[in-house]
Design a protein around this nucleic acid. Structure first.
Lengths: 184, 184
DNA sequence: GTTTTCTACCTCGGAGTCGATATATCTTGT
DNA sequence: ACAAGATATATCGACTCCGAGGTAGAAAAC
């Protein structure tokens, strides 16, 4: 998703992609060559991107990669109907968010944000006693577990706040669009 | 790490572990049987835990798992000197945090928190233009990317604040410990 | 009395990722 | 002229994890 998402902005070569994906995914965890290049080849085989060999501006020749219509469609499908992990895994969610603007339709964007919002809404019960009964934060003995739940709660509220404002904004814009369409 | 960490609290059987690990790791993403049971076997082979077959209180017979001294040592090694991913990956970091109290020595605990603090300190540069120059948040066109960086910044500050207070507290306690030891 | 459901454990194949290794190109230093 | 180092692409083996499937016991539903 990150590869096609970045290529949707402008054509890039593998080495450049590597750095950009590394900065984004789980912030600045370098992505391995053994992961990147086979994935590029896979996307090429699936006709999601084309490559043109260009002389290296600095060093060895580059393979300039360009997204195709098939690739754009694929990217939009991934964004519109993300796998569960992209909603529940913070790292994956942030990758999705970084490219959600490629999904153009505000209503569809709002629906994806709503899925995240729904996930964040379920109360976190992280720790249980021997009988399997949930332990409330104030009864936790470990200060680290207490902090973990505090941070979790606080960051969730921050994101929920942003999500709500964003969804409202998107629905407003979608409403305008409908109104304009109705009026024409 | 999560398996040994939970067993350090009290003995559990595999099925129970499954639910507890699922609640913790990346909050409520179920862990697959195909991951759990081979890992338990691996830990058993490494003498990190022992198993006793007990009659199932509800249904099929259970394998009650207990951590050994070797297992406790292994857990403490993982906590004391975590792999890079446990500091840079949010999900893994939260798992580590959930068991950091098993590391008993406040000074060692503080050192681990300091590693996380150091990681959070480096400024996040997530997006770059065609020339490779970083794009500041206010010049981002996508509201999602803008929000992504806002949320990232805000949640980082929340965690940094907690980390600083916690490290100070731990160092204070470590100081007391040294003083008591000196005085005795 | 039979099926379904929940508990509980285990294995196999496939997919994805990494780390190590190899190769080629161009620039820079000596 | 040559070596060193950054750029750039690619492959291979090892490892991890998941999902699908299988076994089995006990309780609940029909």
């Amino acid at each position: 998703m990150a590869i096609l998402g970045f290529l949707r902005d402008f054509p890039l070569h593998g080495y450049d992609l590597k750095n950009r994906v590394a900065s984004l995914a789980g912030h600045v965890r370098p992505i391995a060559d053994g992961t990147l290049y086979p994935t590029i080849k896979k996307l090429e085989d699936a006709q999601c991107l084309t490559r043109r060999t260009a002389p290296g501006s600095v060093a060895a020749p580059r393979h300039m990669l360009e997204i195709t219509q098939t690739g754009t469609d694929q990217l939009r499908r991934w964004l519109r109907d993300p796998e569960p992990g992209f909603v529940t895994d913070d790292n994956k969610w942030y990758v999705l968010l970084a490219f959600l603007h490629h999904l153009e339709n505000p209503r569809e964007q709002a629906l994806v944000l709503a899925r995240r919002r729904e996930f964040l809404d379920q109360p976190a019960q992280l720790f249980f006693d021997e009988q399997g009964a949930p332990i409330p934060p104030e009864r936790l003995e470990s200060p680290f577990r207490k902090g973990l739940m505090q941070i979790h709660r606080s960051t969730n509220l921050t994101e929920i706040d942003w999500l709500d404002r964003q969804v409202a904004d998107l629905n407003r814009r979608a409403g305008f669009t409908v109104h304009q369409r109705d009026g024409s």
